[in-house]
Design a protein around this nucleic acid. Structure first.
Lengths: 297, 297
DNA sequence: CAGGTTCTGTGCATGAATGCACAGAATGAT
DNA sequence: ATCATTCTGTGCATTCATGCACAGAACCTG
């Protein structure tokens, strides 16, 4: 088997010989293959030498296949057909909105995006949708996730395709009970008199966490949580003032916006896919759907 | 069709991906293919990018094929099988002493070699043997002939495989009737008193013709013929003295050797084949047969 | 017959593919 | 926990495949 394999250690030479056998001249085969005719003749020379077998009778105006060349013509045609069918199947799969789809996002985006994804899945019943809430950067190239929805600076990992979902206003919110007890926020100079909810001090991954760290005394951070969802839960429970996207806060009638949103708080949201699957209909469909349906009214 | 073809414009990448899918690691595939693992990963990267489709899940300890990768595994296995069978058929044909065999030689060698070739053909009834007597240099690479039997200096055409059949003594012969009428050849100093048979004056391709041209007065060349066979016919008919190989002349009891053979008259005979077919059993068989059976006893 | 066109075949320069060397990740053994 | 082994992934240097430019052969047209 291995000894036989050595005869055909270059499948591209077979492809070239097949085209010459099919078309009859070096020039035509070269045009079909998109290479120079010198390349074609060299492939034929190499293949014939390796096989120790003449594949063609050579004439000034083209090549005619020998019996061996005709045999190779048949095998080459079958191979090309098989590859074309494989290509069609792969494209067919890629043209479907079906199969598994793993979406990863920060927990803070879940209350907003999970219902949207649910509607998408209802529209495509063949889709097996998985939503993973994870701070950790799931590896798109490892297939741990197919779509990552990220906030903050534009992701720059190589081999990733990044698309902006939108830039969303963020502001400081508190529960009305908190406001009744501690009062409103008169201005940004009065931050120290209030209690705040933030992320872990050691991390401060989010630009908003860093903003709080720079503008609020440490003694005024009343509550720290590793997950954004826990942070928003604390705000909703009246523990303190914290950042939320305006449209997420709008879902809660008991939340009060403490100050107008600053432009620097605006947060871009990115849809990230791996280039190897970006072109599939599935990925195009989910990206388009999120762009159309995750906007804030 | 052409659009589909573009997906698989590099059949060697498919071969590489097939080996990875089959063996599970880049290293194993690289070893099997005889390339570096860097080459393997680059072929996979290129193919996945071109297809826009993940073929593998990538892990630190190897690759597992996706559904698409498994599809490619099946197609690759079928392709490899088809190519292996093609290889077997070509080798099988090459292992047979059958089909067409065209042998070309000078006419002067025909009385000696044609019977030998006839015996060879009788031993291989599936062989379609053609003997072409031609001064013109038939193109081995064009398939006009498969085996050329040539005399004189060693042929040097590229892509030809040349094998010495033997070096044969040549001498000057005349018919006994000629000797009865004109006497014997006392020495090489008495050449002018005799009549000779030679090739065309304008050609003098053969070293023997040139020897005559240099050592015999032109008036003593009684008979010129373009074909060596015609020349030997004239000698046999008693027209004059002419060169023949000793073993060919020995077939004619009426021919008399006029002088001992000179070493410079010795003539090497070469078997010439084209490298593309040289290794086939057919060519090996005919070359071996001629070496064994065309010797002079 | 002469000239134009199409095609093959080859030496040399260029560009692309490949191998080398290294580093990092993951796993297993001690 | 540390070290060794296996494997993947990448930048750079080297090698090899390819394209360019040219010439020759064969055929067709005027």
């Amino acid at each position: 088997m291995n000894a036989q394999n050595d005869d055909f250690e270059n499948w591209d030479e077979i492809r070239t010989a097949y085209q010459v056998a099919r078309l009859g001249t070096l020039s035509a085969a070269a045009a079909q293959l998109g290479v120079h005719h010198a390349t074609v003749i060299r492939h034929i020379d190499a293949l014939e030498a390796r096989l120790g077998c003449k594949l063609f009778q050579r004439h000034a105006r083209g090549y005619t296949p020998t019996e061996a060349g005709q045999d190779l013509l048949k095998v080459g045609a079958a191979t090309e057909d098989q590859f074309a069918q494989l290509s069609g199947r792969l494209r067919g799969k890629g043209a479907e909105v079906s199969g598994e789809l793993i979406v990863t996002m920060l927990s803070g985006l879940s209350p907003w995006l999970t219902p949207v994804l649910g509607v998408f899945q209802a529209q495509h019943p063949d889709l097996r949708l998985t939503v993973m809430l994870d701070e950790r950067l799931l590896r798109l190239e490892y297939g741990e996730a197919h779509l990552a929805i990220r906030a903050g600076p534009k992701p720059t990992e190589p081999d990733n395709i990044v698309r902006l979902l939108g830039t969303f206003p963020v502001s400081l919110f508190a529960h009305r009970d908190y406001v009744a007890r501690y009062g409103t926020l008169k201005s940004l100079e009065g931050l120290a008199a209030h209690r705040f909810v933030s992320g872990l001090k050691t991390a401060q991954r989010s630009p908003l966490d860093r903003w709080l760290g720079q503008n609020v005394p440490e003694d005024s951070i009343a509550f720290r949580a590793s997950e954004p969802r826990s942070q928003s839960d604390a705000v909703i429970a009246g523990v303190g003032i914290g950042f939320l996207m305006s449209h997420i806060a709008a879902v809660h009638p008991d939340l009060v916006m403490m100050t107008d949103p600053l432009p620097e708080w605006q947060t871009p949201i990115w849809l990230v896919t791996h280039m190897a699957i970006h072109r599939t209909a599935k990925m195009q469909a989910i990206s388009g759907f999120l762009s159309d349906n995750a906007s804030v009214n």
